Amino acid sequence: MSGEQKAEAKGEQAKGKLKETAGRLTGNEQLTAEGRAEQATGDAREAKKSVKDIFKH
């Protein structure tokens, strides 16, 4: 996994966590759900790249 791709996945996870936290603090369920979805997208992207790296070597 390239450093740029890893940073992008981590950034997406962090952004999702911030949205989720903001949603919880304000009681906004939609924002909480969006945050969870962004975190899941970042997790999936990171996992996909890790699997690719395993088979590359």
Rank of each mutant, 00 (worst) to 15 (best):
residue 1 M to E: 02
residue 1 M to Q: 10
residue 3 G to D: 15
residue 6 K to R: 06
residue 7 A to F: 03
residue 10 K to Q: 07
residue 10 K to I: 11
residue 10 K to P: 04
residue 11 G to M: 08
residue 11 G to Q: 06
residue 12 E to D: 07
residue 13 Q to E: 00
residue 15 K to S: 07
residue 15 K to F: 05
residue 16 G to I: 02
residue 17 K to A: 10
residue 17 K to P: 05
residue 19 K to N: 09
residue 19 K to E: 13
residue 20 E to P: 04
residue 23 G to R: 02
residue 24 R to F: 02
residue 24 R to Y: 08
residue 25 L to R: 05
residue 25 L to E: 06
residue 27 G to R: 10
residue 27 G to S: 15
residue 28 N to V: 12
residue 28 N to A: 12
residue 29 E to W: 12
residue 29 E to V: 11
residue 30 Q to P: 13
residue 31 L to I: 09
residue 32 T to C: 05
residue 34 E to I: 05
residue 35 G to W: 05
residue 35 G to I: 03
residue 36 R to C: 04
residue 36 R to K: 14
residue 37 A to L: 02
residue 38 E to Q: 15
residue 38 E to S: 08
residue 39 Q to H: 01
residue 39 Q to D: 00
residue 40 A to Q: 09
residue 40 A to R: 01
residue 41 T to P: 04
residue 42 G to W: 01
residue 43 D to K: 13
residue 44 A to D: 08
residue 45 R to C: 02
residue 45 R to T: 01
residue 46 E to P: 14
residue 46 E to W: 11
residue 47 A to N: 11
residue 48 K to H: 14
residue 49 K to D: 15
residue 50 S to C: 05
residue 50 S to W: 05
residue 52 K to T: 08
residue 54 I to H: 15
residue 55 F to R: 07
residue 55 F to T: 13
residue 55 F to Y: 13
residue 56 K to N: 07
residue 56 K to G: 07
residue 57 H to F: 10
